[in-house]
Write a protein that binds this DNA or RNA. Sequence first.
RNA 1: GGAGAGGUGGCAGAGUGGUCGAAUGCGCUCGACUUGAAAUCGAGUGUACCGAAAGGUACCGUGGGUUCGAAUCCCACCCUCUCCGCCA
Length: 426
Amino acid sequence: MLDIKQIRANPVAVQEKLSLRGGDYDLQPLLRLDQRQRDLETRRSQLQSRSNTIGKAVGQKIKSGSDPQGPEIAALRTEGNDLKTQLAELDPEEKALKLEIQNILLTLPNLPSDTTPQGKTETENVEIHRWGDAHKRGPEGILPHWEMGEKLGIFNFERSAKVAQSRFVTLLGAGAALERALISFMLDQQIAAGYIEALPPILVNSDSLTATGQLPKFAEESFKCADDDLWLTPTAEVPLVNLYRDEILESDALPIYHCAYTPCFRREAGSYGRDTRGLIRLHQFNKVELIKIVNPETSEAEHETLRQNAEAILQALELPYRVIELCTGDLGFGAAKCYDLEVWLPSAETYREISSCSNCYDFQARRANIRYREAGTKGTQFAHTLNGSGLAVGRTMAAILENYQAANGAVKIPTVLQPYLRREVL
RNA sequence: GGAGAGGUGGCAGAGUGGUCGAAUGCGCUCGACUUGAAAUCGAGUGUACCGAAAGGUACCGUGGGUUCGAAUCCCACCCUCUCCGCCA
């Protein structure tokens, strides 16, 4: 959520930054509501103050012997009732305004960072660097991963559609073991990098989704339980960040690092026909997620190390990838700055997103009300939150099935995974 | 799912209509005493909003209601705990 005070103070600057994302943002209606709300608040608090004085006066007079039924107290009661009537008129309007303002604020995306490259669409994203070109292979003799997987019998889509629907997979035998090995390897590596492992709830309530920014705008992207205020989490970022919702942390408790394996669930509404085959776009997929809650002064540096922690997995697996920085037009709703890691998929001869590392600055923290207190100072400040995949497991498996295909049709197991899988080829 | 108990400040725990943002204790911060520490003593110690400031307002699980006045009374909801049942 954006800071209404900032919008009030610099409406033009905020509007310009928002428009870098593309789309129209007119902040004037919001500012008018805000002004009206504050006027009402001033009025209301004056009336309230008088009402409090009367309330106290009545009590005092009765205590010091006035007749509770006498004219003096009757007059105060009348004035009190009068104020109550006036307040009853102001109050609903002010509450409605507050709600309206809040609802508008909740729909506004984060401001892009000053360092985020400007651009309208993903074509203007900026490549930062590439890694592993030496291992990069072309499509010659490469089966797409879904064909390879079916040939090896390590997953099955057709039967999964029977169990659930399309865009679900069942991993079988070595496929299930490989997925499990990848999860263990990723977690072990991130734990070694300083992240505290968490195994959080994967059903989350509406407040949690609102705090991290999936609600109210992206409700159609998540699966919702019919009878409870619970949703299947679209990413572990939601439960992990919300662990600290409505908390005031001591500054020495920061930074907080968590990693977590969870399944993730996405409805993929509006992506019909895209990536219909294989492990790339499923309603349910596994991911190891990284989150950080940090002091604002360190968040830029923390973002860089977060990205390196994600990159380290790809390097250890010797999968060729590139890092791109999203331009302002391609930035996610809550992100101020974002790097995507894209792994090489030889069958398609493209790089595909396998990790997204975002710095949300204080955007989520304001929604989630996650603050910290600097020792010895008065007041509190919003922390910064960061998140990144480390990594998307299904897409990692896809990348391995393609990049590690040998000429004889076997798939070699990356060296670092061999201790986990206790085998060298699939 | 059934029965019961309960939700108050960092924690514990008073408070059942009036001056209560809230006693007391612990914790924490600063100070005094001490060679240092402990103990002791003194002062301070919630959050947010409005306001240039003085100051004002709100918050005792959440939302309504009664009243001149609600932590306290009424209604609804949420959550936690205990026991029973069921269950991985």
